[in-house]
Every structure is written in structure tokens, then in C-alpha cells.
Nucleic acid binder design. Sequence first.
RNA 1: GCACUCAUAGCUCAGCUGGAUAGAGCAACGGUUUGCGGUACCGUAGGUCAGGGGUUCGAAUCCCUUUGAGUGUACCA
Length: 566
Amino acid sequence: MKIKSELSKIIEQALKSANIQADEIVISDATKPEFGDYQFNGIMRLAKELKRNPREIASEVVEHIDTTGMVSKVEVAGPGFINIWLNNEWLAEVTTEILEDKRVGVGFVEEPKRVVVDYSGPNMAKQMHVGHLRSTIIGDTLATLLEFLGDEVIRQNHIGDWGTQFGMLIAYLEEQNTDGNTQELKDLEQFYKDAKVRFDQSEAFANKAREYVVKIQSGDEHCLELWQSFINASLGHCEEVYEKLGVNLTRDDVRAESFYNDQLPQIIERLKEKNISTTSNGAECVFLEGDENPIIVQKSDGGFLYATTDLAALYFRANVLQAKRICYVVDARQAQHFKQVFTIAKMAGLVGEDVSLEHIGFGTMMDKGGKPFKTRDGGVIKLVDLLDEAVVRAKDAIKDRDVHSDEELDAVAKAIGIGAVKYADLSISRESNYIFNWDKMLSFEGNTSLYMQYAYARIQSILRKHNAEVSGEIIIGDEIEHRLAVMLLKFEDTLIKASIEATPHTITSYLYDLVTLFMKFYELNPILKEDIKEDIKMSRLQLSILTGAVIKKGLEILGIEVVEKI
RNA sequence: GCACUCAUAGCUCAGCUGGAUAGAGCAACGGUUUGCGGUACCGUAGGUCAGGGGUUCGAAUCCCUUUGAGUGUACCA
């Protein structure tokens, strides 16, 4: 339910009836329960423009508000706030209706857009490490969210498969194969290290590697074949990680750097034509106002750089894929790069003015000491290892609960462990760095996935215990049920906000508030006790079912599974 | 040097398109139980929102400035 926009309409109508002009009406959540459910704070500003007393205007507006439907009560408070209470009968009716709705009351965006979400972007020469985690899960959440709200999402996995190190890697791969050593590259990290050792030791090998770089780029069939087999194997490793993470990225979403290779000269031509770039010290450069250094788009030796590839990708996404919104889920440290590339793309007309280009930046993952997250000996932590450890730790956290068979325990541990890692990441506002802490993320307390999953499991337990059909309407019987119903209906506004700002943590905060409220409701209002009247019992069961459905849908958007028992 | 980001309770974090007495969790202390799953719930305590100035009826939020931390800065991605 788009509550805020409904309330805006009501206020707009009231203002009109009171003969007051206002451009934009912003409804906010009430800051406290005693101030109602929502509030409108715009009167003070209007009063200033009209040079009138704000309380006086507010009283006039309030008189014109219809309190027979959605709204039950409005009040003028403080200097001129308008506090709004939602009607219990209305809440009961709407929540009962959405019990039947698979989308739990969430509609679609009014104007669906085609959106490109660029995320994950692993480097094919290296194992995925923790640095890729944030891009992968924030991007995946954003894609899922936009899709759910009705946008047409095109996922793009811009993998790094081009560059000088590939000459070395395929030369080494060829050597391994001809030695009859057909074992596939199990450990990319090790393979890279071994190739590097060979490269440093043997001059002949090093020369071959350099030769291969040129050969791949000029389209030599043998080299391309080797290169392709290397990329395939490497991509296979990434897919294992995606599988573990439960991330929806497939080979169809891969559009590698190499894909844009042919188009790079045209990009340079275009920049030259439009007099955007100039030659400086032999390199083709774009000098932007406010930047002391240029953006180099072509090296003095004729080679291209990542800015060039990104420009080609922007052109492709805006013109071939026809996206109206392009989101780059990439480390915040690349903010300057994207700002520059976006500016150049618009200047050169590679991307239309109506296309929204967004760098969805995120902070770095830190250890407890606030230093970038590394292994004890200073190495990079492999993502696979991190995820496996999460599952082991999750199993340890729940093994004494004695509600699972051995097979169940493994599946539940997986849902909890992976969920914990994802939730911990998604629940921090994405731009800030965050401190990685196993104990905190696997706690039943606080804003963690486990707390949400536990609440969900408790709801399922109630339903199992009831073990009969649940029917009938939701009745709002007290303050806590009123607040719970309002919270349940806030789900759509929450998702809309999260989709516009690309902030998954908006969703986690909401879920946490919802679950906290549900726990209070559950403590206060017995459901299955014998002396509870049938219609009240049914209503409370329905509220529980709806809460469970919203938790499940919310976690699903975050890519986290629920379990029936914990 | 220049540019950008950040600074909120002991710790980890929300709140930032200006609105009422700045909120959570953890840790500390106290309470609730013949419990529909107590790894739950309730309460107490804890704040010069880094310092200073400005704009405003109103500032954690906007502007300026100082300090501190981090990041980026011509041929890697």
C-alpha cells in the first residue's frame, strides 16, 4: 500500500478546499506513537510564504480532512504540525485483503523503466575475494528489488577478461596441457602464482606470454581458444560462489570487457570529432574542468584504458540495451572515475540526457581493528572460504537446539550462515565502511538475519501448533495491533524508498522494526490460549500469517532464505 | 598540493531532501515465567550529534571554517 502518496492526496484535497496553494506535499512517519501514525510538517513553510499564523492555517486544513475512510483522526500540534491517525476499520479491511495477495499488498511502479544493473564484476585472473562480496550482493538485491517493483532489469556482469596478464596465463595453461597434465585449474590463486613464477624464471616463457597478448588481441585462433577455455574455467569458479551465495547471475548476464574491444576505436573517433579529447604527451586525453589531471582514453602506445571500455559500455547500455537507468555497483573509491566517465559520456552524446547514470558506491569491509579485511598473514580472504566458515559457524550456533534431524541441520545451517553474511552487509548503509564481526552477525539478538529467521520460525511454529484452517477477518483490537497493521502496510513505501536510493539497509531496518513490533504483540496478546475468543484468535493468527509473509518476501528480496524451524 | 568521503552513547550502527524531548542493538544493572519456541519481552543508566561560526521561527541534518581519520589523484582495472 502506497500510504504516503494516499495521504498526500488527502492533504492536497484539504488544502485545496481551504484555498491554499502548495506545490509538493511530503508526508513523514510520526516520530512518536503519541503523535499518531504519520505527520504533515509543510504548514510552517506555507505559513511563512502566506505570512500567516501556521496553527491557524493548520486548523483550517484539518477541518477539511475527510475522517470517514482511511484517516480516523487529525490533530494540530506544536507550532503547526498535522498529526494523522489511520482508521482501525480501514486497516483491518486492507490487511485482510492482502492476506490473499502473493505480493503482500505491494503494487507496481507507475512508469516501469528498463534498468541496467552492473554488479559483481570479478577478475578472471583471480579468485573471488571478500572485496567482491559487497558488489555482488548489493547489486543482486537491487536487481531483485527493481524487478519485483515492475522495472525491466538487465543484469550485467562486467568481468575482467582482457589485459596483459592473460598472455601469461594462457601460455602457462598451454604448457600444462601439452605436458599431458589435464587437471583443470582448481585453484586460480595458485595457478596465477605458478604462472608468475614461470614467467619470472624463464625468459622464453615470458616472451611467449608477451607474444600471446598480442596474438589474442589480433584474433589468433589458437590463442583465443586457449583464452576461452581459461575464461570458462575461471567463470566456473565464480558460478560456484554465486551458487553458494544464492545469487541470480548466469552466463547470459556476462558481458565481458573483451566484448567492447572492437568498439573502442570508434569511441576515440567520436571524442576527437566532438573536440572533447586532445593529444597530450602522445596520449589521447580528456581534460575536464575542475580536474587537474586528464582522463586518458588512449595510451601513447595506442592501447586503451578502462575509461574507454566504460564509455563503450555506457554507449552499449544506453543505445543497444536502451536502458533509462544504469546503476554501477562498484567500490566507493571509484567515485571520481565514474563521475568523470559519466560526464564525458553525456558530453559526447554517447548517452542521452534522459538516461540516469548512477554509481552505487559502497565502503570497504574492515576487520575488528578497523583495518581492511585480510587473512592473518596479510593475504586476501577467498570468498569461498568465508562462506564455508559462515555455514560451519551457523551450524555450531544452532546444533544444541535439538529441533532438527541431521539432514535438516545442514540445510538450515546453510540458510542461516549465508543469510548472516548477506544481512550483515546489507544492513549497513552502503556508503560507509563496515566492521566484519562473526559473533555479531550470527547473534539471535539485534538487527541480524537470525533474529528475523527466528521470528519467522516462531510464527510457523504457532501455525503448526494450531494445526487447522485459519479464516476470518483481521480485527484491530488494541494499540499494538494498530501499530503492527500500519507497519505491515508500510512495506511498499519502504521498498520504493530502497529502490530509488538503492539502499538495501532501508529494507533491513524496516524488517527489524516489523519483527520487534511483532515480538511485542506476541508477548502481549496470546493467540492460542484456551480462553481466547474464536474471532480474536483467528484475527491474531491472520496477523501472524501476514507478518510471516512480509518477513519472507522482504528476506527474499535480500536474497535470504527463511526456514520453518530453527 | 588539489579533490572527494567520513566524524552521533563505552562498542557496533540508524536518523541527514531542516521540524516536536537525537533512536536501536551489544556490553552494564534490574525485572517478567504453572512460557502459543525465554537465543524472548519489559525497564534503568549512558549524548557538548568532533570544535567554532553562520543561515532559519526551528539545525545532527544546509553553508563556512578548524581539527582528526580515510580515499582518489597522466598512460593498471
